[in-house]
């Protein structure tokens, strides 16, 4: 009985199909908001779905000189990582499927699998744009990962637990964390943008410099699966931040309202910024991001002691 439950939760809800579908819808919303902010109509609602199906049915070209096994398996690892992370997160405002002490760390690192896979995929394809793209992707990973994790740990310290469900229970009953810990909120939000390689942190896939970055050589299925993974990561990241900083997600309606609101903020930020060079990105994270979060920690600790 338990096995069936596991399979259902992994394949359909909250992992699997639900996350993939919701990810695609959120991706559409993101594109639509950006398009509207640029005074145009933007894509239709089924656009990401059509894109995904089309890519899945396209021919997959394995370029010369790559390791074919790695080439095929890396997208799957990326998607699997994202889907696994979904199991520990209060998806759609419901209780997470699994939960144990310290699952926050596991979730955050499951999410990093995507970027790591992209980096490896780029290094595997012996193509110059891919190589530069993967170098940049990994450099960026090291830049934002620590501040992002530290920012997520802010509420955890306040709640006194590293278990997502306990933190969410704490944030639901207290004042919104984005008011108590504004610095942490901003860093987490921008960290999410870095993680998803959204503008202005899109230099790993900067179209005008290195074509499509690490994924330049991927066509068809591999590209589609990476896209799906990105979508899944978007929705998981949004859920985590709303759950931690915006008063938790107690039911699907609040979940929808809060995550969409957060997405609108993300989209507005994306459309207002110029792409940063990779050195500027790294400099910004370590010079400001990390220091600010540490400052936030200091404040939390001092407040708690007092």
């Amino acid at each position: 009985m338990e096995a069936i439950g596991n399979i259902v939760s992994l394949l359909f809800f909250p992992g699997g199909l639900f996350v993939i579908f919701a990810g695609l819808m959120y991706e559409w919303l993101d594109h639509k908001i950006i398009a509207r902010s640029q005074n145009r109509i933007g894509p239709r609602w089924f656009q990401p779905i059509a894109d995904a199906i089309k890519l899945l049915t396209k021919e997959e070209i394995v370029p010369d000189g790559v390791n074919p096994v790695l080439f095929a398996i890396l997208p799957l690892i990326a998607l699997a990582g994202a889907l696994t992370a979904a199991l520990y997160v209060p998806m759609a405002g419901l209780k997470p499927a699994y939960s144990f002490a310290g699952d926050l760390i596991v979730t955050v690192y499951m999410l990093s699998l995507l970027t790591l896979s992209i980096g490896l995929a780029g290094a595997n394809a012996k193509e110059r744009f891919s190589l530069v793209g993967s170098t940049r992707a990994l450099t960026q990973l090291f830049a934002y990962e620590a501040p992002f994790l530290l920012a997520l740990l802010g509420p955890a310290i306040a709640a006194g637990s590293w278990q997502i469900s306990e933190i969410v229970a704490y944030t639901e009953t207290h004042t919104w964390m984005m008011i108590l810990q504004p610095i942490g909120f901003v860093v987490a939000l921008i960290g999410l943008m870095g993680k998803l390689e959204l503008p202005p942190f899109d230099s790993p896939e900067a179209e005008t410099e290195i074509v499509a970055g690490a994924l330049t050589e991927y066509s068809g299925r591999g590209l589609a699966i990476f896209h799906l993974g990105k979508g899944a990561e978007l929705i998981i990241g949004l859920t985590l931040i709303t759950a931690f900083y915006m008063g938790g997600v107690s039911n699907p309606v609040w979940f929808l309202v809060k995550t969409v609101g957060l997405l609108a903020v993300l989209a507005a930020l994306q459309s207002l910024m110029t792409r940063l060079r990779i050195d500027q990105t790294v400099g910004m994270w370590w010079r400001y991001g990390a220091l600010l979060v540490l400052l936030q920690w200091l404040i939390i600790v001092v407040v708690q002691l007092v």
Binding site: R36, S37, Q38, N39, R40, I41, A268, S271, L272
Partner: peptide, 14 residues
């Protein structure tokens, strides 16, 4: 570009 971006939500798309 803030004014343009916010403004275009109220305007009809071009």
């Amino acid at each position: 570009m803030f004014s343009d971006v916010v403004g275009s939500f109220w305007k009809k798309p071009a």
